[in-house]
Design a binder for these strands. Sequence first.
DNA 1: ATTGATATCAGTAACTATTACTGATTTTGA
DNA 2: TCAAAATCAGTAATAGTTACTGATATCAAT
Lengths: 128, 128
Amino acid sequence: MVKYSRQRECILRNLQSRKDHPTADMVYESVRCEEPNISLGTVYRNLSLLSETGQILKISTGNGPDHFDGFTHPHTHFICKRCGNVLDLEGFSATNPIDQASVHFDGRIDDYELKFFGSCAECLSIKK
Amino acid sequence: MVKYSRQRECILRNLQSRKDHPTADMVYESVRCEEPNISLGTVYRNLSLLSETGQILKISTGNGPDHFDGFTHPHTHFICKRCGNVLDLEGFSATNPIDQASVHFDGRIDDYELKFFGSCAECLSIKK
DNA sequence: ATTGATATCAGTAACTATTACTGATTTTGA
DNA sequence: TCAAAATCAGTAATAGTTACTGATATCAAT
């Protein structure tokens, strides 16, 4: 049984009100304005809980901390290999490939993830 | 400058000779037959090196340790959410979506990853 | 409204996966 | 053969996350 908690509410509202894709630590820093006594463990626990119930998305970048997204409508992400930042990819409509992938597969496919990697505009503008 | 090392050679051959997608620790256990004194740190360092040069693939599952693949021809992976195992998805030909994704994007997209999630046949056969 | 069961909390310790450090060894070009 | 430097084994340290603790907050049943 899941009970209401002020802290979880605050975390969810925070994520839904922003357009970036913060890490647990960034959410922690951000919600401390409203919830000065919240602990990082609480943030982690509630981010897990919220992503299990589908209210937010957890984005693993393959390098460094996970990121989270309050916008759960299916969309695609870009991960910058230089700065680790996560961005939305607009105007990209992938046709759902689960059915196609399921044809020759014994198990059950529930979900898929399409991610793009490269260098973001900001990183490209910095000489290297 | 990259010098030859017996240990790296052994790790690469090990990965290329198997069809599963082992973790660093599994590779470590496996190569210890041939290289009894190899250390886990050496395995990690060389797996990183080999995946940076594109000789193997690193597969992040989003939960638990990374997996590695000695078969580098582009193909798609399935990740079991129950046991964490990584399997190849045969007979799935995704058309390369990088061009389409790049149209409305400022940065540079170098790579993409399509992953499927669900329950593998073995896990489905176990009551839960 | 009060109570009791239990979910959640803050704070902290522990854990897992990975990386960095050390002095010894191996590789390789000269 | 030799010396510079890459790599090694072994180990310590780190980053990110999860688990534990006793205290507090929520909520259904009185």
